[in-house]
Amino acid sequence: MGILTPDPGLVFWTTISFLTLLFLLRKYAWRPILRALKVREEYIEFALKDAAQAKDDLDGMAEKKRQMLNSARLEREKIISEAKVVRDEIIQEARDKAETEAELIMSHARENIEKERAEAIAGIREQIGTISLDIAEKILKQELSEEVKQESVIKNYLKQIEFN
């Protein structure tokens, strides 16, 4: 059969063409194309990894943010409660101080009043004494103007002295 006998000419040309094509394409087509595809694949892989990394980072940051917010809230509460305590203390202190102060003032005032009153009473007493002496002088002058009365008084005193 003619078609089953290979023709050496065609084998030769096919080999030449195939090898030429292989070397030319390897240099000018397959290398650049395969390199470009590899670069793209690596880039995509890298980008995917990067994206995953970024997502992880973002998640970490969100977590961090949450933690920070939480701690800030706790801090705030702590500060507020501390402030409350301090405030209460200050108020208490102020109140105590005011009370003692007030007491002090009051006691001073009381002492003063006492003193004043004592002084006033002393004054009154003196006055009353003088007035009484005046009155007594006046009464005595009136009473002892008559001889008879003078005698009876003397007698009376003498009587009293006798008792003693």
């Binding site: 030319l24 394409l25 087509a29 397959w30 194309i33 470009a36 670069v39 880039y43």
Partner: peptide, 16 residues
């Protein structure tokens, strides 16, 4: 050669 030469030129020119 023409098809893949052209394709390779495009890959080289435009980058991967």
């Amino acid at each position: 050669f023409w098809i893949f030469g052209a394709a390779a030129r495009k890959y080289s020119k435009r980058g991967g």
